[in-house]
Write a protein that binds this DNA or RNA. Structure first.
Lengths: 146, 146
DNA sequence: GTTTCTGCAAAATATTTGCATACGC
DNA sequence: GCGTATGCAAATATTTTGCAGAAAC
């Protein structure tokens, strides 16, 4: 697992080599995606970026995130009935989602890539990604009233 | 695993016992959700219901599906960047999604509920559901060109 | 008879797009 | 300088909502 800084550098190189340009806005968006552990929404990324670069639009956030999504550099999480949330990690990993407070945390349940490979062998699909999410009520929200 | 017919009966009872009423539209929507293997969108359910009950609106489909979703009787699948798809099965099971032709098929990789319970024990969450989806390119789409 | 459900149309929400200008390379 | 990226506003797509009439129970 690379540090966010190392991954940032690597990612910037990869973007450039594909003909993408680095603008301050784009750098800021990348940085938030790679460093945040909050799995932010587009709106949250937007607000966060604006504190440093007031000259940023929500459309740019969407455009950048879409590009990264297509390159497989970010994952899209979340429910259909609320806005999408993004995970700057390039490799799929399980999430634990609280259905009350909407918090999303990472989870480690061992090697899920191996499962992927098994599925690929058995089905003939070329598996490119996967999503393992558990939905439930976190300990804090269980206390809240229930 | 109950037959769709048995589950239909059971589900109707449960709905009634919670004060919900059974209308022809609602019955038709339930039937499609329980019998279909296609993981249809709201629009597809709507079209399908209309062949038997032309007097049905898309809003009713949405209202019914939302109710079932809240009751935990259907699962919502699909990506954020396309419309939601519904699975009439009450218990979570893995899906195999083709990112080219968008086909979604069920997948059997053993007991995923056990994993859920492990996660619950380890994290203190009350796990209510989960989603295991694999994204890739199906054999047919691999042949198509590439 | 009461309460829920329905269909319609309008509203709300999230995301995408077109285009003129700005700016990275 | 060329071509991509940006910001704005308008457009799109999906889902939700308000309300009056219809229909379950």
């Amino acid at each position: 697992m690379l540090t966010p800084e190392a991954r940032m550098e690597e990612l910037v190189d990869r973007l450039r080599s594909q003909g993408h340009r680095m603008t301050p806005q784009r750098m800021a968006i990348l940085e938030i995606l790679l460093k945040s552990k909050e799995h932010p929404t587009a709106e949250q990324i937007f607000k966060s970026v604006k504190t440093n670069f007031p000259m940023t639009s929500l459309a740019t956030v969407y455009k950048t995130v879409s590009m990264l999504k297509e390159m497989g550099e970010v994952l899209e999480l979340g429910f259909h009935d609320e806005c999408a949330r993004y995970d700057g990690s390039p490799c799929p990993h399980p999430h634990l989602v609280c259905i009350k407070c909407k918090k999303i945390v990472d989870l480690d349940i061992g090697d899920t890539d191996e499962l992927s490979q098994q599925v690929a062998r058995r089905t003939g699909y070329r598996i490119e990604s996967h999503r393992f999410d558990f939905y439930g009520v976190c300990p804090q929200c269980q206390d809240d009233k229930e």
